[in-house]
Design a protein around this nucleic acid. Sequence first.
DNA 1: ATCCAGGCAGATG
DNA 2: CATCTGCATGGA
Length: 279
Amino acid sequence: MPNEFRSAFLILEKIFIPATDTFSLKETLECGQVFRYQLVDGVYHLSAGEHHATFTEKEGGWDMEATNIKFFQKYFDFDTNYDIIQSKVQDKGLVSSAVSFARGIHILRQDLVETVFSFVISQNNHIPRIKAIIERICTALGEDKGGYHAFPTVEALASKDTDWYKEMGAGYRAEYLSGIAKRFRDEGVPSFDTLSTEEARKLLMSYKGIGRKVADCVLLFGLKRTDVFPTDTWILKIFGEEYPDVPAEKLAKILVERWGEYSGYVQQWLFYEKREKKV
DNA sequence: ATCCAGGCAGATG
DNA sequence: CATCTGCATGGA
C-alpha cells in the first residue's frame, strides 16, 4: 500500500505545546542528544521508538501532531520542573551565559536500544553522517508505519551481520552494532532499574564498542541518569584551560563531583552553547 | 587535499 | 595507571 494511503489512516492526536523560559523545541532537538528529526519548511518531523510527531511553530509555541501524545509527554520530560533545576545550577555558579542561551533544553527520555545504537554510531563521527546512518538502518529494518519507520526491533537489528552495517555506512563501528544487537537478542536487553549509576555504567561498558563517553550518553538520554557528565571533544575544549591535559574520563569524574545530580543538564547546556557559538 | 568528527579497543610504557 | 595508535567514512 502506498504511503500516502496508509498515512491517511494514521490516527494523529493534536495538542499545543507552549514555549516557556525553560522549554524550547528547537534547542531540545538540535542540541545533539537525538538524531531522528528533520526540519522541513519550518516543520520539525521527529521519530522516536515506534512513534512520530510533527511540530509547526505558532505564536507562543508549537502545534504538535503525534501518534501518541502521552508518549511524547514523557519523552520530552514535561513532568520535570526545569525552573527549579535552572535556579539550582545558577546557585551552584553555572555561568549565566550558558543558562540564558541553552536553558530551553530538556533532557529527552529516549528508548534505551535506540540510544545505544545512536551513540555507538556517534563515536568519532559527524552529526550529518550519524543521522544518515541511523536513517538508513531504520528505513531498512524498521516497521513501515506509513510516512515514517519505527526504530527496528532487537530481533531485526540482530538479524544483520557486520557487513550489512558496513553497507549502511557505519564503518568500523559495524562490528560493534551487530555484536551489541546479537547480545541483546541472546541475553535480553538488561534492566537497569535497580542498578546504581556506576553499576549501570559498568554493565554498559561491558559491551564492545561502548566506552565511558557513549555509556554516559546512554545513561543520560536513555535512562535519565543526570549524575553523569558525558565528556567529549567539546567538553574537553571548554575545560581545557581550567584542567589542562586532563583526560576525558578523569575530567568527567571531576565535573560530576562539582555538579552532582545536575551534571547532565549542565553538560547539555554547556555543550550546546559551545557548539553553537564556537567560542 | 588534508583534517577531523559527541571515541573505542588493544597494545605498549 | 597513563599514553599511543589504528580505525571507516565523508563533509569541510
